[in-house]
Design a protein around this nucleic acid. Structure first.
Lengths: 331, 331
DNA sequence: CTGAAAGCGCTTACAG
DNA sequence: CTGAAAGCGCTTACAG
């Protein structure tokens, strides 16, 4: 492996000059520059990124920690981050916390150790603010993705409240009064926002939300399946509509609905956040709040870059709008 | 940021000793070691991974290049790789070629520049063997994922031929003679294997495969939709079954089937490779060849690690078995 | 059992 | 316009 010293001696110049030619960081006589470039070519020299990063304060890499790499929405966000990073000449270091705060902590430490230029995090359920303090301690640029916080940090997510309001309005207009909300883990801010949005929207319409129409805290499809089945079989005031706040929750709920032999939308209306890919090809056709997940990832990179360029710009909080795909499940 | 020098002077020892304590690489008196560890704690010292990597020949990171981060199967593979990497204390550098050989090339160069300890690649359609030669030139451990090659390189994929044979057998047994194969880009080895497997299986049964029952080379859902529609409306010997070789192709084909008002499985049987997530919750219930994508990713890391540990072990080619989920679409 | 010192491959003031 | 040299923060023979 050729080093800068090999190139310098072959070109008959100093390593300073080679470095300056490569980085275009000071004027070099055209003739000298050509000698250097030709030496680079004949030696097949490639700059050592590690050595370079050690001298500069930059590694040209960013870290991404997602909370659940399995969910389609997160897969799309990762995709968007990767795309935008590549476009900007940044390498992407990917880690998955799997909703485990200890793993999340370890991932963040590993990324900080690698001196990434910045971090993008979709925090795990129950993630503490201490983690963010740790990152701030290192003065590392940070963007919160999808799961936001009431903190002075750059963040990008979607407008969950308004999407939920639109969904409730859609159902209420069609006469649904008893709507079962499957909200998942309320420590997750996006789920909490959907939950709060639901209550606000129901209140607006003077609709009640009895405990028997709330399914909170389940975190797997299987446990959701069980809980929904129980709710459907025991409650005497059965809901006329079910609303799931994530793909996973929707999967559990749909399973329960089918198991109980209910028809969507015949005997039960149904809608979900995030939902399933290519769902317009399948029955039941499910009304879905679709996040712009790919763009969320892209935007996170943009915000991070802006913060890296200038650490002192004011904090930005970006809320993209989700689109609601209305389908037959709520007709 | 504290350095090893700070720790050494605080503990009253040499940097050698600090290094040896940290790496547990030579005996140090318990009392000395304790002084060092306490100095580490009070300074908040963290070893600089970059400087360390520069001295050692390892970065404890691996690179992954996937050809289509959008497909669910690849998302699962990424997930599996990430999981296994984390388990082994490796950081993951992720890049997406988006089926573009120029981007793939750039991604590989970027990863090599970062001195990853090894590479895992699901090659883009039309990727040249020159790329692999380039990696070999750097003596960089390499594992081919999903899309294999007839080369002396470690690789892990699935057994496409036998899965296809089982699928054809399943259909033939049910009386299907005219089966439309939607094979996609045949430069992709996994798709080529499915294509070849189809022809072999049909030949085995003495079934013909006229050109009117082959849909090759489409690479988007939209173009597949168009081609399949044309085939369905123009051919007088309409197929009784359609077989798609990837999720994307299945999406296009299903759209065409619905557009033509055909019933699955009533007027048209249907099966696909890879398929859709949670598809057992939806109609039509589609017979699907399901790759163990997550395990594929995990295995790739295992093979890479083995190669990194010992560059001279013989080449290994691993074929995992796919499972076929038989459903009503082929009844 | 431990330390002084070279060296990994760069970048960047400093000097001319 | 260019070079000699220090230094980034480690690891690792070499020496005692």
């Amino acid at each position: 492996m050729a080093t800068i010293v090999d190139v310098a001696s072959l070109a008959g110049v100093s390593t300073s000059t080679v470095s300056h030619v490569l980085n275009d960081t000071r004027h070099v006589e055209p003739e000298t520059r050509e000698r250097v470039m030709s030496a680079v070519r004949t030696t097949g020299y490639r700059r050592d990124v590690l050595a370079r990063s050690m001298r500069r304060a930059r590694t040209d890499s960013i870290g991404l920690v997602v909370s659940d790499a399995g969910e389609p929405a997160f897969a799309d966000m990762v995709h968007g981050v990767e795309e935008a990073a590549a476009q900007n000449g940044l390498s992407l270091l990917l880690a998955n916390s799997a909703e485990d705060t200890a793993r999340e902590r370890a991932a963040v430490e590993a990324l900080l150790d690698r001196r990434v230029d910045g971090l993008i995090i979709a925090r795990a359920a129950g993630s503490s603010d201490g983690l963010l303090a740790r990152i701030r301690e290192d003065k590392k640029p940070l963007v919160l993705l999808d799961r936001l916080a009431d903190l002075d940090v750059d963040q990008v997510g979607v407008n969950n409240q308004s999407a939920m309001a639109a969904l409730v309005e859609h159902l209420a207009t069609r006469g649904h009064q008893r709507i079962l909300l499957i909200s998942g883990d309320l420590r997750v801010s996006s789920l909490r926002e959907r939950y709060d949005g639901f209550h606000a929207a129901m209140l607006d319409r003077g609709l009640e939300v009895p405990a028997s129409l709330l399914c909170e805290g389940t975190v797997t499809a299987a446990s959701t399946f069980d809980r929904v089945r129980t709710l459907l079989t025991t409650s005497k005031d059965r809901p006329t509509a079910i609303l799931a706040c994530s793909t996973l929750l929707a999967a559990g709920a749909l399973g329960a609905i089918q198991h109980e032999g209910l028809q969507v939308p015949g005997t039960m209306a149904f809608a979900t956040f995030d939902g399933f890919t290519y769902s317009d090809l399948f029955e039941p056709q499910i009304t879905t709040v679709r996040q712009p997940a790919f763009r969320l990832g892209e935007s996170a990179v943009g915000m991070l870059l802006r913060r890296i360029e200038n650490p002192n710009v004011p904090t930005e909080i970006l809320r993209l709008e989700s689109e609601i795909e209305f389908r037959r499940s709520t007709e």
